[in-house]
Amino acid sequence: MRFNVYVTLKRGVLDPQGRAVMEALHSLHFSEVRDVRVGKFIELDLNGMPEEEAKARVEKMCQELLANPVIEEFRIEEVTE
């Protein structure tokens, strides 16, 4: 069972990396870019278990380790083949 986890900085937390990327895009004449936020993308592959249980476990993984709630939020996506 596979899950994708997206970890991003909360709105309101300054993202210097995103700003640097935006400035680079501007210098490449992509002047339409108004904002860039850089985050993390994590792929998880789990042993088989009931879907609801797996989702709850991934949620817990995010809360305990994968994201820092002080600055980050996360989004979980189940991968269906």
Binding site: V13, L14, P16, Q17, A20, N68, V70
Partner: peptide
């Protein structure tokens, strides 16, 4: 900070 023994978090320097 990560352990929650101190408040806050250390992020990447503004200058990167």
């Amino acid at each position: 900070c990560e352990a929650g023994l101190l408040p806050g978090v250390l992020m990447m320097n503004a200058s990167l």
